[in-house]
Amino acid sequence: MTELANKLASYFEFPFVRHAMIVGALTALCSSLLGVTLVLKRFSFIGDGLSRVAFGAIAIAAAMNLTNSYLLALPTTVIGAVLLLRSGGGNATIKGDAALAMISVSAMGVGYLVLNVSSTSSNLAGDVCATLFGSVSILTLTVTDVWLCAVLSALVILVFLLFYHKIFAVTFDEDFAAATGTSAKAYNLLLSAVIAAVIVVAMNLVGALLISALVIFPALSAMRVFKSFKAVTVCSACFSVVCASAGILVSILAGTPVGSTVVAANAAGFCAFGAVGFVLRRN
């Protein structure tokens, strides 16, 4: 045990390990906060679709030789989120699920196409794999990346805290909220913008294909056990941070890919909470 602790301590001397832990915990916190709303609004898949949009945008940014791919990925994903959440609203000509599938596959396809045509890198498959599964990128974070992530996370958490009650009302009963003078449309728009920001940040940690896990697992796990909105929100935030940190630690010690280890930790946590919830209901 002490050997393990010593090994960990020696790893934490490296700045890239500390950066990975900070970014991992912040990303997990943000995605779990919004995950509760997304799951309850039946928008679980939006995270998945948006991550593909972000993938496409990052590919195009790479092709354009932009130094910071956030600059393109963030606005594109925000626009994607607004369009997707609006089309989920019911009055659109193309229904939500179809629109989602359409946008996400075209973003993936075009993104890979652009990368393939323009890339000068000798290891194209490796680059694409990293963007999709986040396998190495979290351990190669620069100080700028960490700061960017910290600022975006702080913004997301601030928005969530300031509008917590409004988000609850709009999620619980949108009609009532709108009828009694809470601008449901504006809050939906705000939510989609924030969700997009979280997705772009989370791409660093787990990559485009595995983001849904960070959004869905904490909320669903918390809902197995807790029954008020506040308790579910707090629990899913803690769950997410613990799972992400555990996943990163294991991946550092065992040399496994970061993203998939974090997702596996989330899945294991979900099973544990499912069991606890089952026992609680039996009693």
């Binding site: 309850l40 619980f172 009963d173 909220a177 809902m223 579910v232």
Partner: peptide, 20 residues
């Protein structure tokens, strides 16, 4: 209500949302 069957919300949270 449009609220789903599995929505975690206490009665107090629901009632208070009327004050929003």
């Amino acid at each position: 209500t449009a609220a789903q069957k599995d929505f975690p919300a206490s009665v107090r949270e629901v009632v208070r949302s009327g004050c929003l």
